[in-house]
Amino acid sequence: MGQAFSNLMKNIAEGKFVYTGELEAHRSTDLSEVIQWAKTLKATGKIVAANVTDNPQSVGALSSLVTSYIVQRETGLETVYQLRCSDRNRLALASDLLGAAALGLKNVLALTGDHPKKGDTPEAMPVFDLDGTQLVELIHKMVYEGRDLSGNEIHGPRPQFNIGAAANPNFKPLEAEVLKLERKAEVGADFFQTQVVFDVNVALEFLDAVSHIKAAFLIGIFPPRSYNQAEYFAKNVPGVQVPKDFLESFKKISELPDKTERRRKIDEYNIEYFADFIKQVKKKPVCKGIHVMAVGYPEVVNPIIEKVEKG
């Protein structure tokens, strides 16, 4: 792990268990909705930083660099600037990174990115000049050597980034994933944010397997707002295992006739389930926090964290 530049990394270095959130811009020039959501996250007082997605699923959206900056400026919530290799070569990546540094961003999440064919612009040239791991190397070189990959010097002060990367606890065989994460840590990843995990055993097994890696791991969770959403993960998000009990409980609740009652029960269940989940993963020393992807569902974020903190 490198130096701690960001609040996120400083908190981790101080031994605090951290929570990160997620913000998603759209194909629009209007960021008011994103800013509103960022304010909500900020107001919880528990979310130390929020990721800003970069053309997620290769669906085109307002630049994540700009969004990260504006959110930080408007709300004071620290951002994790996500950067994908799908759309930019190393020249563009480096210049965006310089821009990010100039705008005062401190966290970058280096991603390979989805193939353009997965998104709404399938005709686009897939760039992938670098992959996610190589992007980590680029950032690391810029921060610690003041140079880009070709050795060109950065004039003036070096950028100060903490480097994040993605991890997937659901990957099978886990060995292949772990070796890959070793690579990413080797070239300079400070922290890993993981793909959504529902099954606590999957998370625990993963954390055991990466315990030797010198980086902070933040496990991704996604409290679903409804049975349909939970079912969607179970059925349509390949590789993600949703435990049977979890699904069945959601199904039962979804059959309640009263809407308010239903919402209340779902909230309760999510709070109960994920607080317990977090308590368990928290015991693993390599697990330094949780990445909460509860987009559009702020009601549970605080209660979950409070319940965890109460012990």
Binding site: S86, T112, K118, F128, D131, G132, T133, N168
Partner: peptide
């Protein structure tokens, strides 16, 4: 590899299959 990656697999690999 649809992305020509040097350090794969990427997150698009699920159960040994490519997302593309």
């Amino acid at each position: 590899c649809a992305k020509g990656l040097m350090n794969g697999p990427c997150g698009g690999c699920v159960e040994g299959k490519c997302e593309v």
